[in-house]
């Protein structure tokens, strides 16, 4: 699971949970894979992000170093900033671990890089 995905994910599927955002990350295995750098894509995607959530998530899995706490003005022209965003959004991946709902504490396992957001039949009744 990449952090761009984590930034968009909620646990509001659970009954009684209002926003279910942001999910806490517990990672036992994190890997970094190389991904082609695409500044146009980053410039389009950064305004859609909750940057604070990204910053917290990156730090919680030990990859927040040097990441600015807020989106810099004129970030589209700031290559250094875009490269940092590129790395945490697309290159850092949680392979094993789990996500935790901030309201209910329900955990969602991540295995082989794929989060399992399914509830049980008892929970959806």
């Amino acid at each position: 699971m990449k952090l761009i995905t984590h930034n968009m994910l909620t646990s509001k599927c659970i009954k009684g949970v209002l926003t279910g955002y942001p999910l806490a990350i517990n990672a036992t295995d994190v890997k970094v894979t190389e991904v082609d750098y695409n500044p146009d894509f980053l410039s389009r995607v950064i305004p859609k992000l909750d940057w604070e959530v990204l910053w917290t998530a990156a730090n919680s899995i030990g990859h927040g170093e040097g990441l600015p706490k807020a989106v810099e003005p004129k970030f589209e022209e700031n290559e250094e900033f875009l490269k940092k965003a590129h790395k945490v959004l697309l290159e850092v991946e949680v392979e094993e671990g789990y996500l935790t709902c901030p309201e209910s504490g329900r955990q969602f396992p991540i295995s082989k890089g794929i989060p399992n957001m399914l509830l049980t039949e008892a929970e959806v009744q």
Binding site: T10, C13, V35, N38, L90, N116, M117, V124
Partner: peptide, 23 residues
């Protein structure tokens, strides 16, 4: 095209999962 792979997730489409304001 693996650089444009974001993620796949196991989830039930009948239940909401994505942030409300994601477009």
């Amino acid at each position: 095209t693996s650089s444009r792979y974001l993620d796949v997730l196991v989830s039930d489409f009948s239940l909401p999962m994505w942030r409300e304001d994601l477009k």
